[in-house]
Amino acid sequence: MRVCFFVTCLADQFFAEAAADAVRLLRALGVGVSFPRAQTCCGQPAFNAGHWDEARKMAAHTQDVFEGCEYVVLPSGSCTTMLRAYSPRLFEGDRPRYEAALDLAGRSYELAEFLVKVVNAKDLGRGLEGVRLAYHHGCHVSRELGVKEEPVRLLEATGAEVVPWEADQECCGFGGVFSVKNAPVSLAMADRKLDTLPEVDYLTSADGACLMHMAGRARTRGLDVNVRHIASLLWEARNG
């Protein structure tokens, strides 16, 4: 089995080691990974800000880059949702591009989802025995794609305890441009997440941007919150 890895621009620049761990994990599970060099951004920032002409350019570029890949795997729930649920809407008036968008949507997976649904990975190694985790469900991947159980199931299979968290499915307040345009509200939303966060070793998620947002807020408030991307935790569990 071979996949194309779509690192996504944010992970490329800010979660590079976690993205590398995702590749290591896939390879350790026998999945061949290639990295199309021309890849950039899925276009979601522009899509969510309503600048659809710009979003279309990036989405079209992404279609071209990943043409011919059997699977496209992303270490980002939100970008996966862009490919799967949002990108087709950009091309409703452009039949070839619309079909290409649907085609790409059918081949794209969030990492944890891919491991569960396609690789059927059950045993990742029990390297996280005794580790307490809080899992933040990214809004788009959990609500638009319905990927809720897969990441939690994988984390629990590593021996980690995913601790109940009353706000685990609430929005962290990132929301792309929203976090800049309405910064005080965005930060208050992060506070709600942080104020309800149970005592854990790590706060984790499939969405790096959410983690960055919450970690940044925790830092300015002087809170001690350790943040790790799910790909790094899963690789650590596997690798010992």
Partner: peptide, 17 residues
């Protein structure tokens, strides 16, 4: 202003690759 300075990874994924 709300999050502290951005901290890019020391190397981009592309470079690690």
């Amino acid at each position: 202003a709300g999050h502290g300075a951005l901290e890019p990874s020391p190397k981009s994924f592309r470079e690690i690759w």
